[in-house]
Amino acid sequence: LAASLGAVLAKDTAFVEVVLFESSSTGDYTTYTTGLQGRFSKAGATISAEGEIVQMHPLGLCNNNDEEDLYEYGWVGVVKLEQPELDPSCLTVLGKVKNNNPKHMNVFFVCLQLNQVAEDPLKRPVVYVKGNDAVKLMNIVNKQKVARARIQHRPPRPTEYFDM
């Protein structure tokens, strides 16, 4: 059972890299990468993806969300899930994810897609990040103006660069 359990954990592990950029006056730039881990939820697809990080308020996941038409290129939505009593009652993507992981206390999830058309399952990854990794992620979101994230379902190879 342990072997198969290990296999199960490995299989849906998500490797998240969050990259910050610092550019100098001469035009070159430095990147700072933070490695995190999470779990792919069954509500989404287990594939790689990357994009600019954008935090979404849980109410932003409701059907009548307005911000959908503001976005024009790849992005990674970050939603801080709330305790049950704080949860907004209108749930679309969030509802799917919750059904796949009932014990969501203090869980942050990185969802790549906020297409309001109901898809089943979503064609893009939905990733749970918990505990310290989640706190690291939300602190980055809290402090930075711009950050990019890459999600992969296998450990990142050191040579890989970001699609700038």
Partner: peptide, 8 residues
């Protein structure tokens, strides 16, 4: 890869 960008 999804195709949304945000202009504030």
């Amino acid at each position: 890869i999804c195709l949304w960008c945000f202009v504030r």
